[in-house]
Amino acid sequence: MSDTLLEVDDLRVTFPTRTGLVQAVRGVSFSLGRERLGIVGESGSGKSQTGRAIMGVTPPQAEVSAKKLAFDGMDLLSMSPRERRALRGSRIAMILQDPKYSLDPVMTIGRQIVETLRTHEKVSKAEARERALAMLQAVQIRDPARVFDLYPHEVSGGMGQRAMIAMMLVTGPELMIADEPTSALDVTVQLDVLKILDKLVAERGMGLIFISHDLRLVSSFCDRVVVMYAGKIVEQIKASELRDAQHPYTRGLLNCMPRIGFERHPLPVLDRKPEWAA
């Protein structure tokens, strides 16, 4: 297995609308090893669509193109839909924002985890159940057997997101795309969920793409940070060197972060220059 897990070169995602074509992602390039990469940007910057394009779950009307989009040396765009599907959920997984909407409301949590497993591996029902329970344990759910039979609405947001992580990690994927995995959660449980995610990613040696609007979270959690603006990457930087970021947009984002002990009047306003998007 090569060192680079994912290679993205000139990725573009285009949506047809009533008024013409809209490019949500406009030539994004980066590569990823077994490391944690953060993608930061405001809403509408194309960060989520980048993640979904890699995953292959963009809406059917969207057009995805790239000079290169390769996972583990395999060209994702030239694959058949069937081959692509076999990768999804088994080697590449994805966590969505809000477990309230991203878990099927009429199926128990256990069945949803088992479903992922049995889609990709030939395992008996009993074994699938065992592994699902073990996975629930791994995301630090104390009473896995009880949670297994609960419906998503019967658990809290933090518990739901852990179930989501369990559902996506049960097959042991190598790359995980986490799309705002904690934004919909209470502040108090955000850290718990992040720790669990961090631990699992580290233990299993997975690559992680962490998509968020929260620069501080990303900088503390990831090895590298990609800053996106209007569908383009404006800066790629090591998380540890974020303080020395060059691009005015990144600097603007940094300035907006509140710091204890500093006078914040007047509140800083994020500068947006059209030439950054050009």
Binding site: R88, L96, S102
Partner: peptide, 11 residues
């Protein structure tokens, strides 16, 4: 969204 999640599971 759960449909996106189902796709992401490879169903």
């Amino acid at each position: 969204e759960y449909i996106v999640a189902a796709r992401a599971k490879g169903l």
